[in-house]
Design a protein around this nucleic acid. Structure first.
Lengths: 221, 221
DNA sequence: ATAAACATACTGGCAAGCCGGTTTTTTTAT
DNA sequence: ATAAAAAAACCGGCTTGCCAGTATGTTTAT
């Protein structure tokens, strides 16, 4: 392989165009690639069948590079959950801000369904279900889930308050229930349930929510 | 160890009481033990962290015996799902038959919650989430799920018809949604969500169902 | 220069499946 | 009825492949 000659030193040598990225850029690009590959693998194969080697390969990255950024599989997975949650929150805020207040609640279910049933949501689902089998995950994940869960609840509370609803306990119960329902439906789609059946359930869920809004609005006056 | 003498041949020898079970009995007892141990392990550690050796040990059975009845882990897990589903259906029927028609619908949610959030339900949840990573599971499990799902739907359709509801599509959507919600809440309890929050969500779910019944009953006349 | 980013090779542990052999039950032949 | 033969249930060690983690070497940025 006669590539070692000073060809690279010649002026026109642009065979591999060198971007000359900064270290911070390299790191964040590396993490992005690893997250995407992880999510994709988790979606396709689940937690246990997702091997670190597989993730590295799909990311187009060496195992060593991955080890440099995430020394253990658990660590990577926790970071994946954080990444997905952050992106989801950003996704919600970006879309909701453009809508008039009255329409936001209704849109929320569609957005949440997209987030939860998508690749990222399914990946998170798999990681969560791996908790009972991984002690590290069991200690590291709950704080992450709790933090973002609180942020999400806060976001929805604001929407509800703007709509004139005060019953905090009921709002929380509603959030818990609707998120659980969406997760359950996402699970159904994982195990191959007929999508039409799932769509019907989603429609009913929207109906339920608007019923709840009516009741609460009536009670609020 | 002088137990090898003909003590067993004497009339009163009850030291090791030999049951002299029939083969069918031995088989079914063995399967029962393996199912219970599997469910317990799945609940405690999830799918991947549940090893066949662990199941055998917890069942108080040799690995070879287990291999005789279930030659592969996947095979055992499919059988576990079948067992849980059969027991659940039996559980539903037994409890519901004793109730007057009007109360059955409401009771159904409690029963389904007990079944889905219990050890067996969580075990099934773990097995389902393992599907993407196991090709065998992916081909063997759907038929089982489909069969029992249809039986469950049939049971509920009868209840609904007895209550004067005709809208078949809406009934199916309702069943799908409510089961999904319960599964999602079971998942929440697995990842350690505050039980009070879950109870609140359950209460709201019951409210939703009675609302739906009222609407349907009104529409049926 | 030196530290961070990236790559390659290796290792230790472990779980699933396999296999030869033993014990218990059931069937068959006498 | 009873012994021999066949079948079914049961046992535990072995092994092979594979995966997470590690150790060491090379390139790129600061």
């Amino acid at each position: 392989m006669p590539k070692s000659t000073s060809a690279a030193a010649t002026a026109h040598a642009a065979a591999p165009p060198r971007p000359r990225r900064t270290n911070a850029e390299r790191s964040s690009e590396m993490r992005r690639k690893l997250f995407d590959a992880s999510i994709s693998c988790l979606h396709d194969y689940g937690y246990a069948a997702t091997t670190t080697a597989m993730v590295a390969e799909r990311a187009g990255v060496s195992r060593g590079a991955m080890a440099h950024h995430f020394s253990t599989k658990t660590e990577l997975m926790v970071a994946v959950v954080e990444d997905v949650f952050e992106r989801d929150l950003h996704f919600y805020r970006e879309r909701l801000d453009k809508l008039p207040l009255r329409e936001r609640m209704d849109k929320l279910i569609d957005l949440a369904w997209k987030a939860i049933s998508g690749e990222g949501g399914q990946a998170v689902l798999h990681i969560m279900l791996a908790m009972p089998g991984d002690a590290d995950l069991r200690t590291r994940l709950p704080p992450v889930i709790g933090r973002v869960g609180e942020q999400g609840r806060e976001l929805i509370r604001r929407l509800a308050l703007a709509a004139g609803v005060k019953n905090k306990a009921l709002i929380d119960a509603s959030v818990t229930l609707h998120l659980a329902a969406l997760r359950g439906l996402a699970l159904e789609s994982i195990i191959g349930t007929d999508p039409r059946s799932i769509q019907g359930a989603l429609k009913l869920l929207r109906t339920y929510l608007s019923y709840l809004q009516n009741v609460l609005a009536a009670g609020a006056h």
